[in-house]
Design a protein around this nucleic acid. Structure first.
Length: 495
RNA sequence: GACCCGUUGGUCAAGUGGUUAAGACACCGCCCUUUCACGGCGGUAUCAUGGGUCCGAAUCCCAUACGGGUCACCA
């Protein structure tokens, strides 16, 4: 039964940066907590001391914050159920492991890793499922004690294994998948709950912590389904009530149909990478929520608050969610278009500096110019780094003119238009949007040339491109001198 | 191999016994427009296959095929 207080957690292991799949897990737990006015807790699962990386925890939390998540208890802020790092809870686990040992529900195991590996190889060869075989089979208590004493005498160190009940069925009503059940004999034999280094294994620590932290619901990836019966056994051994589980489908690569692997380089998978490219956090949040979950109506773009309000765990999908990079870009573009100028400027400026187009501390006039440039391309780009190719011509001057554009300039009125334009700006010493627009309109009025024939020659002569954003704005950014220069060169060439 | 799970258009994805089978992305066409983009409108579906159950099935049941996940002293 559901507990009265809703408490959910996100429990990353600090073995790497925040992966998109982890972010999704965190997000759905967060959404569930906030929707139900419960608590959202972060717990660091760092029991694998070998795999932990220095920056892991900081990076996880930092990127979660960037996505807009906040939590009520965690390693960085404490809470009533701490500590929130498993490495700091070792004494707690040892205490519970001893209880199991005393009750005879767990035992010390001295099989070496080499022996176990050999067993597994042999089982595989016989086409059996790899599994641990009880090492004290057929022995009475005295014989077991003797065997263990012998092992100790040989200097072997023990791990602690949980004695899996025989002939039992472990079933639960999964929040996503419905009824799921496992026979105890299929889970692979007595599993380790305490490693040789004294640390608990994941399957043990997670139970102790979820119970002690009064976690009511656990949303996690599909890859944990097979762990659930093991955890259920431990809850049973202690006489505790298990939380409600919900196993979400995995994110797959739409190209390969396989689970997104961290080594798969065809997809950027770490939140940090998107952050560096100048994606908007609100857009990432929105996109990730759409991975394996769908809102009721036809819209797909919502704020965090709206998601919280409408979140319903029943709408989590059972089938895998395919990662669609195109969709990601589209979602980001939606946000980019609606973002205010300052936000886009803040995002794009570092990109321009990074690309070497702009100096780090440019003068105010250059900054103002850059601001206009960025806002010109705001609706074209999905993420800030995309501005670089668009912006380059404005910094480095125009590129070579292609054949298609040359053909356009060969049109009858092209030279006329250019000469008119050049003549009409001869007596000014600046060019801004308004001035350019007025000038073009006046040419239209006087020469009756209009539309494409009027605009295209000017665009090509000054920008050397057939496509681009609004012409008057573009010319303002290119500036008076450069525009005149390009115009003169083109007129000379055509004359 | 065993155990769990899934399978709706080019792609993603709503839909839980009676619908013209939503919507999004992509693509194509038209409109808007100085161009591109944006925006607007429109276009394409034997719901994996085969059997059932039912007046009626994408929806329930059973097989088959295909796909995925898991079988660690990792989490």
């Amino acid at each position: 039964m559901a507990k009265s207080k809703i408490r959910v957690r996100y429990a990353p292991s600090p073995t790497g940066h925040l992966h998109i799949g982890n972010a999704r897990t965190a997000l759905f737990n967060y959404l569930y907590a906030r929707h139900n006015k419960g608590k959202f807790i972060i717990r660091i699962e760092d029991t694998d001391t070998k795999r932990n990386i220095d920056d892991g925890e900081r990076s996880q939390l930092d990127n979660l914050k960037w996505l807009g998540l906040d939590w009520d208890e965690g390693p960085d802020m404490g809470g009533d159920f701490g500590p929130y790092r498993q490495s700091e809870r070792k004494d707690i686990y040892v205490d519970y492991i001893n209880q199991l040992l005393e009750k005879g529900l767990a035992y010390k195991s001295y099989r070496t890793e080499d022996e176990l590996e050999a067993d597994r190889e042999a089982q595989k060869a016989r086409k059996e499922m790899p599994h641990y075989v009880y090492e004290y089979a057929g022995m009475d208590e005295g014989q077991i004690a003797q065997a263990q004493a012998d092992a100790e005498a040989k200097g072997l160190e023990a791990v602690v294994r949980f004695r899996v009940p025989e002939g039992a069925t472990y079933a639960w009503d999964d929040l996503v998948k419905g009824n799921v059940s496992f026979e105890s004999k299929t889970i692979g034999g007595d599993f380790v709950i305490q490693k040789r280094d004294g640390m608990p294994t994941y399957n043990f620590a997670v139970v102790i912590d979820d119970h002690l932290m009064e976690i009511s619901h656990v949303f996690r990836g599909d890859d944990h389904v097979a762990n659930t019966p093991k955890q259920l056994m431990i809850y049973e051994a202690f006489g505790w009530e298990a939380p409600q589980f919900g196993h979400m489908s995995l994110i797959i690569n739409s190209e390969t149909g396989k689970k997104l692997s961290k080594r798969d380089e065809s997809v950027l998978q770490f939140i940090e990478q998107y952050r560096e490219l100048g994606y908007l956090p609100e857009a990432m949040l929105n996109f990730i929520i759409l991975l394996g979950w769908s809102p009721v109506g036809e819209d797909e773009i919502f704020t965090r608050q709206e998601f919280i309000k409408m979140y319903d765990e029943k709408r989590l999908s059972k089938s895998p969610a395919a990662f669609d990079g195109k969709k990601l870009e589209w979602v980001n573009n939606q946000y980019m278009k609606n973002a205010d100028e300052d936000a886009v400027f803040d995002l794009a400026l570092p990109q321009l500096i990074e690309a070497g187009l702009l100096e780090k501390h440019a003068d105010p006039m250059t900054m103002e110019w850059t601001r206009k440039l960025i806002s010109l391309f705001k609706r074209e780009i999905s993420y800030a780094a995309e501005i670089i190719p668009f912006a380059k011509p404005f910094f480095h001057g125009p590129a070579e003119i292609n054949e298609e554009a040359k053909a356009e300039l060969a049109e009858d009125d092209a030279l006329t238009v250019l000469k008119e334009f050049r003549a009409r700006i001869a007596d000014v010493d600046y060019l801004n949007t308004v001035k350019v627009l007025k000038t073009i309109k006046s040419i239209q009025k006087d020469t009756k040339i209009k539309g494409r024939k009027l605009w295209m020659p000017i665009r090509i002569a000054i920008t050397h491109e057939m496509h681009g954003p609004e012409l008057p704005e573009s010319i303002e950014l290119i500036g008076y001198e450069q525009s005149i220069k390009n115009l003169d060169e083109m007129i000379k060439e055509l004359s």
